[in-house]
């Protein structure tokens, strides 16, 4: 709070002299860009509640009557209920897997200066720079040979592997900032290495873990290419893929497509708005330290 007051005072000093004219210009630009972001999203939600006829007559305004049936129809006929369940089925293990593994490895790399730990770290870093495209072709045949193609695992395992480099990078940087003395003290009291990690370090890393969870959730929920390549079977499709095929099949049924888009959008927007501070923090911290 004190810090906030201080910066706002400084800010005050900085703005001294900003005229009314500047304020008007300032807010027109800021509001213009806010509308550019919001209005297109509004169109999707608005059109998801219209009939096809009403869309033709009134494509851009709010709906005159709210046709909620579009949602029940998308959910059942459009199979978005199934796709939603699939998204949850794959997202939970991806988040748990990627966050726990990168937390463990990040800790291992930060706390134990083992032989080759730098090399291992660089090998993980390589994953941040190598695009997914360069592994997507062999991965198809590897998953086929492991008989995982067309199962949920075909999305879960590669997604975790792809998420690890950033996760490890992020968690390692976090653990490096924690003082070693904390762990050493617990160690002297006779705790095992894992106990030190579990009882001392992990509780301290909850903020970083939370940022990771939110970040990986977003990534898994939005992931498109991995299920497109390895999990095309209709009954396994996650939401984004279901929506893509749906939009291709029902090009004429705009209201249902819009309802589907809203169903895909809603959970992620809710999570984002609730955790926006943590999310943006996680993202910028990761990026700036990168």
């Amino acid at each position: 709070m004190a810090v906030a007051a201080n910066t706002s005072e400084r800010a005050e000093a900085r703005y001294a002299g900003s005229s009314l004219g500047f304020k008007i210009l300032q807010y027109s630009v800021l509001i213009f860009f806010a509308l550019v972001c919001l209005v297109p999203i509004f169109w999707v939600v608005a059109n998801s509640l219209k009939t096809t006829r009403e869309i033709a007559l009134n494509p851009l305004g709010p709906p005159t009557t709210f046709r909620w049936e579009n949602y029940t129809e998308a959910w059942t006929v459009g199979r978005f209920g199934r796709y939603f369940a699939n998204s949850i089925i794959v997202t939970i293990p991806i988040v748990i897997g990627s966050v726990s593994l990168s937390c463990l490895a990040g800790y291992g790399l930060a706390r134990f200066k083992v032989r080759g730990s730098n090399l291992i770290f660089y090998i993980f870093l390589l994953g941040l720079m190598v695009p997914f495209q360069s592994i997507m072709i062999p991965l198809f045949y590897i998953l086929r040979d492991l008989r995982l193609l067309g199962t949920y695992w075909a999305m879960i395992l590669p997604s975790v592997a792809v998420a690890l480099p950033f996760g490890i990078f992020f968690m390692r940087a976090f653990f490096l900032r924690l003082p070693d003395e904390l762990a050493d003290a617990a160690k002297i009291d006779g705790a095992s290495d894992f106990a030190v990690f579990w009882r001392v370090m992990l509780p301290l890393s909850l903020p970083a873990l939370a940022a990771q969870i939110v970040f990986q959730f977003m990534g898994a929920w939005k992931e498109f290419l991995i299920p497109l390549l390895y999990m095309q079977r209709e009954e396994l499709r996650p939401l984004v893929l279901g929506l893509m095929f749906f939009k291709g099949r029902f090009t004429q049924n705009i209201p249902l497509t819009m309802a589907g888009a809203t169903i895909v959008m809603l959970p992620i927007v809710v999570v984002y708005i609730i955790f926006q501070r943590r999310f943006i923090q996680g993202m910028t911290a990761g990026a700036l330290k990168g």
Binding site: L104, G108, L109, F112, V114, P138
Partner: peptide, 27 residues
């Protein structure tokens, strides 16, 4: 002394090796 370090890193590295490094080499 290093063993615990490897133990922490190994699960992530194994998965990453199978589903990232190996396909990259195959590419």
């Amino acid at each position: 002394k290093a063993m615990p370090g490897y133990a922490f890193i190994a699960p992530a590295f194994l998965l990453y090796a199978i589903f990232f490094i190996y396909p990259f080499i195959i590419s």
